[in-house]
Design a protein around this nucleic acid. Sequence first.
DNA 1: AATGCGGGGAA
DNA 2: TTCCCAGCATT
Length: 440
Amino acid sequence: MGLIEQKQHFSVNLLDWYMINRRDLPWRRHNNPYFTWVSEIMLQQTRVDTVIPYFNRFIGNFPTVQALAEAPEEDVLKNWEGLGYYSRARNLQAAARQVMELHGGEIPQDKQAVFALKGVGPYTAGAILSIAFNQPQPAVDGNVMRVLSRYFLIDEDIMKGSTRVLMEELAGELIPEGRARDFNQALMELGALVCTPKAPHCLTCPVMEQCSGRIAGRELTLPVKTKAKPPRPEQRLVAIVEGRGAHRGRVLVRQRPESGLLARMWELPHVLAEPPAKASKKAAPLADEPAMALLAGSLWAEGFAARPEGLATHAEHVFSHIVWQLQVYKCTEQSQSSELPLIAAEARAAYDAQAATTDAATTAPDGQSASAFSTSDQAERKLTDDADVLGDAPQIHIGKGDQLTYRWIGPEDMDKMAFPNIFLKLLSSYFAGIYDDINE
DNA sequence: AATGCGGGGAA
DNA sequence: TTCCCAGCATT
C-alpha cells in the first residue's frame, strides 16, 4: 500500500467514525466561536470530564466576550479555581479585552490575528480557526501527535518542537476538502477515546487496518517521548492563625504576588523550611519545636504576632515541577501582650538562623528575597480588613518593595476569593472544625 | 531549546 | 502508590 492510499484510508474512515461516535459536549451544541475559544483554553492540559462543569459555569457567568472583558479579574479567577494553570484565565480575559478593542467584540477569523491573542499558540489558533470557522488549519495537540505517530510510525520525539512542526504539515495534508471542523475534532476524539496512551483499543479502531504502528507491534512504544524531570521537593510550614479579639472566628490569609506560581491566588501563610536540597529525594521533615519557632518568626517578619499551638496535619501538593510537603500548624493570634517580645525574640532567632544558612534569600513567601526584620517604621501594611488590632506590628519589606495583602477571613469570605485546591481543602477542614483538638 | 506553570484520572 | 497527561509564555 502506498502512502497516498494510507492517508486517504485514514481521513475517510476516521471522519466516518467520528460522525457516528462524536460525543455530545457542551461547547459542541452551538457553533459559537467564543464557546470554542473558551473550551479550547480550558482543555489545555485538562481532561474533558474535568472541564465540562467549569465550562458551563463560566459561560453562565460570562456568556459573551464583552461580559468576560468587563468582569473583575477576581471573578474570572474564582471561576477558574481548581482548574490549575491560572495564567490561562488571566490571559483569556486579557485576550477578551483585545478582541473588544481590536475587533469590535468579534473573534477574528484571520490567522495572524487569532495567533496574536494572549494565551493562543499554534494548537489553539488551529483549533479555533478549524472548529469555529471550518478553516483548513491543523490543530496538533498531544492526542493528535500520539495518533499520527502510531498510524504513520513516526519515531520522532514528540517533546521536540521540530516534531510538532512536522506533525502540523502532515495533519494539514490529511484534512478532507471542506471538512476541517469535523476532521480535526475526529482526530482528537480518536486519541481521547480509542488511541489512548497506555492501552489503545486497536480492535475497535476505525483505522487499524492500515495503522503502521499496530502492524509493526509498536502501538505501546509509540509515541517516543522524553520523560519530564521529577518535581523537586519543598518542605513548607503552614500557619492556620486563629484570630482573637476583633478577628475572632477568622483566619489569616494572604494573596500571592501578581506573577509566578499561583499568581494572585489566596493562600494560608507559609514559609520554606529548608534550603532546596540538591538531588535529595525527600525533604527531611522538621521537628515541631524548630518548625514552630521558624513559623512564628516568619509571621512576625510579615507583621503578625502569632503563637503556634501544635501540628494540625500534614499535607502534600504536587505541581508539575515542585512537590510541597506541608506541615500545618494551628496558631493563635497574639495582641500586644507582655509575652510578645519573648515570642518574637525566640522566633526571630530561629528565622535568622535559617536566613543565614539559605543565603538570606529563600525564606520569604515564595523564594522571593526577604530583607528579614527590617524595622523601619515608615511603610504602611496593606490590610484590606480592619487594621486596628496589631497597630504596633513591625514594618517589613518582602522582596523588592513588594507587599503581600493579608486579610482575616471567615468561611463566608471564601466564595469571592480564589484559592488553590490545597488551601481550599485546609480551610474547609478548618472551618468545619476538623482541627479543633489541637488547642486542648 | 529549556524551563515555569496545576491538578486529575487510571493502572 | 506510581504513572501518565502536555500548550503557552518566558527566557
